[in-house]
């Protein structure tokens, strides 16, 4: 009788042991995450990099600014001095060094607005883009050519020569009108009439809700 019971017990124990081992082995499939490997995979990042859809042209940007498109935030990644001397209307300043601060992340990591990075060229803007893209932030764009190109195309558009097609003229007219919107005054414009000194567009106030304090427990 005792022999039978022990045999039964042993039988039962083996089953449990086997079950534990099978579960443990199954656990091997789930792998520990690599701490340094935060964000998306390198292959994915490379694929995102090759696609040039992140770039937004200066003409598109001017159009958005003039039509007061509310769907985007302009982020100036240059240092504070250059930001203070000139920046695009309503842009906010996040110097590249402060890109991953918690304060900046509130602007960058959200789904409400498109984020458009720009700098003098698009070199630093691309750097900001690649880091944020790796972290999986959405709706990131880069102003192609940056402020240098902005100046060349929108602020000071080249006059088309006579051998150019009609499109060049209409493009020039659009750009010239845009540059007037951004504060440039042309001599021929003055002769007609008009009043008031030009003002640079007022800065957009972007308020970020401060983090709520941790709810404190109590009775």
């Amino acid at each position: 009788m005792t022999k039978k019971q022990t045999a039964k017990f042993l039988n039962f124990r083996y089953k449990i042991l086997a079950l534990i081992l099978v579960v443990l082995a199954g656990g091997l499939v789930l792998l520990p995450k690599y701490q340094k490997n935060e964000g998306i995979k390198p292959e994915q990042l490379l694929a995102n990099t090759i696609s040039l859809e992140r770039y937004i042209s200066t003409d598109q940007m001017a159009h958005k600014l003039i039509s007061q498109d509310p769907s985007f935030i302009l982020v100036d990644v240059r240092d504070e001095n250059s930001y203070n001397s000139y920046t695009l209307p309503n842009a906010i300043n996040i110097p590249l060094k402060k890109l991953l601060d918690d304060e900046s992340k509130a602007y960058l990591n959200q789904n409400q607005f498109d984020v458009v990075f720009f700098s003098n060229d698009h070199y630093y803007a691309d750097q900001a883009w690649i880091l944020c893209n790796r972290l999986g932030f959405k709706n990131l764009r880069v102003l192609k050519g940056g402020l240098n190109h902005w100046f060349k195309t929108i602020i000071n558009p080249p006059k088309p020569t006579e051998d150019m097609p009609e499109e060049a003229y209409s493009l020039y007219d659009t750009r010239k009108a845009a540059s007037m919107f951004f504060g440039v005054v042309y001599p021929d414009q003055v002769q007609s009439n008009e009043v008031e000194t030009p003002k640079i567009a007022p800065k957009k106030i972007i308020t970020v809700k401060k983090k709520k304090k941790v709810a404190e427990g109590g009775c």
């Binding site: 600014l65 007061q68 509310p70 935030i73 209307p89 309503n90 509130a106 602007y107 990591n109 959200q110 409400q112 607005f113 007037m180 919107f181 504060g183 005054v185 042309y186 001599p187 414009q189 003055v190 002769q191 009439n193 008009e194 009043v195 008031e196 000194t197 030009p198 003002k199 567009a201 007022p202 800065k203 957009k204 106030i205 972007i206 308020t207 970020v208 809700k209 983090k211």
Partner: peptide, 23 residues
């Protein structure tokens, strides 16, 4: 460069207040 006596009207975009919702 433009004539200083005549002044130019420039449309200024109204101030926008944007709030970013924090997660």
């Amino acid at each position: 460069n433009a004539d200083s006596s005549s002044v130019i009207q420039i449309v200024t975009p109204p101030k926008k207040v944007i709030t970013v919702k924090q997660k």
